[in-house]
Simulated assay, not measured.
Amino acid sequence: MNCKSLQPAAKKCVNEDCELHEKGFAKYFCNICNLFDDRPRPIFHCPYCNTCRMGLGLGIDFRHCMRCNACVSLADKDHRCIPQKLQGSCPICHDTLFNSTEPLKGLRCGHVMHLSCYNQYCRGQNYTCPLCMRCMEDMSDYFSLLDQAVRMQAMPAAYQNTICNIYCQDCEKTGECRYHFVGLKCTQCASYNTREMGRYEQLAAFPN
């Protein structure tokens, strides 16, 4: 305290002789959260979250999704709703998400984790959500490379008639495909994010 005057939380000092009476305690003050912030960054109070968020404000660069009960960037055109999705914890570090001061990363499936946790998780060559196992990002370019690898590498004669029963973790459908050690491709959505459920030998020709 500058003048040592006892006072309730406010933007300016109640003592008119104090230099903070005109200057104020901080660049940003929220009289609901009693939050003071003097850093050069935009902050706004969301009445639906009932907390302060980093950004210019609702309708400017953020909107509040009532179903998710979370503020969503207007730049996020692929927002996928999951009810109360910020009420849980980060699947990597298990810290709370709703009151987190760290940047968050929304995945294609709709789940959320800390951006720093996401970067660390990806460095381990993980590309599926740790909660639902769907692809976290658009993997079409990577899957095209796998298509090329499958075409370039012929399977040994012992495996040329091996058919796999698979479950696709992206489209959540089951199906069959020809076995290949590079990967098992879903015939429904062309994803390689699949699990083998079983295999058998096909006597008749199987379509590629």
Rank of each mutant, 00 (worst) to 15 (best):
M1R: 08
N2G: 01
L6P: 00
A10C: 08
K12E: 15
E16Q: 08
D17V: 06
C18H: 00
C18S: 04
L20V: 12
H21Y: 13
H21A: 09
Y28Q: 07
C30W: 07
I32V: 09
I32G: 03
N34V: 03
F36V: 05
I43Q: 02
H45C: 03
C46K: 10
P47M: 12
T51A: 09
R53P: 01
G55Q: 02
G57T: 12
I60F: 02
D61N: 15
R63E: 08
H64K: 04
C65H: 02
C68M: 06
N69C: 06
A70Q: 02
A70P: 00
D76Y: 10
K77R: 13
D78V: 04
H79T: 15
H79R: 14
C81Y: 10
C81T: 11
I82G: 01
Q84D: 11
Q84F: 06
L86Y: 00
C93F: 10
D95M: 13
D95E: 15
T96W: 07
T96I: 14
L97I: 08
F98Q: 10
T101M: 11
T101A: 14
T101Q: 14
L104F: 09
K105R: 12
G106A: 14
G106T: 14
L107W: 11
H111C: 08
H111S: 01
H111E: 03
M113W: 02
C117T: 01
Y118L: 07
C122K: 09
Q125H: 14
Q125K: 14
L131A: 10
C132D: 08
M136A: 06
E137Q: 05
D138W: 03
S140Q: 10
Y142N: 12
F143D: 10
S144I: 04
S144T: 12
L145F: 09
L145H: 11
L145N: 07
Q148C: 07
A149W: 11
V150N: 05
R151V: 13
Q153N: 14
P156T: 13
Y159E: 14
Y159D: 13
Q160G: 02
Q160H: 03
T162N: 00
T162H: 01
I163P: 00
I163G: 02
C164D: 04
I166L: 03
Q169L: 14
D170F: 13
D170Y: 09
D170V: 07
C177Q: 01
R178L: 11
Y179N: 06
H180A: 09
H180L: 15
F181N: 07
V182K: 03
K185W: 09
K185S: 14
S191F: 05
Y192M: 11
T194L: 02
T194K: 01
R195K: 11
M197K: 11
Y200I: 08
E201S: 00
Q202G: 09
L203M: 05
A204F: 13
A205L: 12
A205V: 15
A205K: 11
